[in-house]
């Protein structure tokens, strides 16, 4: 569904962030993109929706060559790619509802943007999504009144209101505590399953990635050095991706988390009590 072919990005400073990346993401697949800081994970995501202009190579979404699009067509194509950010990237002074509705900005015209008036169908769908991410009561609160986990759920609802085919998720949990991180990862993966969405999730936390995704791609210095199931992340592979280090911790934590995951009811009761 998404295919990236020989993608190269060189910044004007001369740094090569991506050195010919090939990546195929089938419909409905949730995959993690891991790698050290500076490996080019963020750049790769942003080259897909061309927030960053690739230097060479192609990106195709459902057959359409995104790299060849003009300004207007690119904006239409971006509507099919929802993006979720590490620091949530909400407009802090606007309400939760307004932030979610901004996901429709690519669909509405000049006057509706100006008056922040969206079609009733959009508003209904926004309510449904807020309900789904359990923020229905907070819809009139200002975004800066929410906790980190709540803000990220607003970001998720905003991305979904675009009615995308794929989610581009940039370090969704790097600003969250471990517990909230897992809730957010679970929510993203559940929503992808419900809606048949593909997702590329950039992440730092190898253990967390192992828990939730079916495929892991390892990036190092702008090139893919691993592509396979999470189980294949042996210490040797991790060393290839990140450099030499003792990996027993990351691997053991992954295993421990998996056991805990088998009792979701308990977990959810605790969460209900907390929020």
């Amino acid at each position: 569904m998404l295919s990236v072919e020989r993608l190269v990005k060189r910044y004007p400073t001369g740094d090569a962030a991506l050195r010919g990346v090939d990546l195929e993401v089938p419909a409905g697949q949730v995959m993690a993109l891991i790698g050290p800081s500076g490996a080019g994970k963020s750049t790769l995501l942003r080259c897909v929706n061309r927030l960053v202009e690739p230097t060479a190579g192609r990106v195709r979404l459902e057959g359409e060559d995104l790299t060849a699009l003009g300004a207007a067509a690119l904006r239409r194509a971006r509507r099919r790619m929802g993006m979720i950010f590490q620091e949530f990237a909400l407009v802090e002074r606007l309400s939760v509802m307004e932030n979610v509705l901004s996901g429709r900005l690519g669909y509405v015209g000049f006057w509706r943007s100006w008056f922040r008036r969206f079609p009733p169908a959009d508003v209904e769908e926004a309510f449904r999504l807020l309900d789904r991410v359990e923020l229905a009561e907070s819809c009139d609160k200002r975004a800066d009144a929410l906790s980190g986990g709540q803000r990220q759920r607003v970001g998720i609802a905003r991305a979904l209101l675009q009615n995308p085919r794929i989610l581009l998720v940039d370090e969704p949990t790097a600003s969250l505590d471990p517990k909230t991180s897992r809730q957010i990862m679970r929510l993203i993966c559940e929503l992808c399953r419900e809606r048949g969405l593909a997702a590329i999730i950039n992440m730092h936390d190898v253990a967390l990635a192992r828990l939730f995704v079916e495929r892991v791609v390892g990036l190092r210095q702008g090139a893919i050095v691993y592509d396979g199931p999470p189980d294949g992340l042996t210490p040797e592979v991790l060393t290839t991706i990140y450099g030499a280090e003792d990996w027993s911790e990351a691997r053991r934590r992954g295993g421990a988390d998996e056991e805990e995951e088998e009792e979701p009811e308990v977990d959810e009761q605790r969460l209900a009590g907390l929020t």
Binding site: N49, F110, G155
Partner: peptide, 21 residues
């Protein structure tokens, strides 16, 4: 700039980003 990037990613026009972000 972070929210502006997010709005841009939704396919918003520059005008939409200006008034909304």
């Amino acid at each position: 700039p972070a929210p502006l990037e997010a709005l841009q990613a939704t396919g918003a026009s520059r005008f939409g980003i200006l008034v909304y972000g």
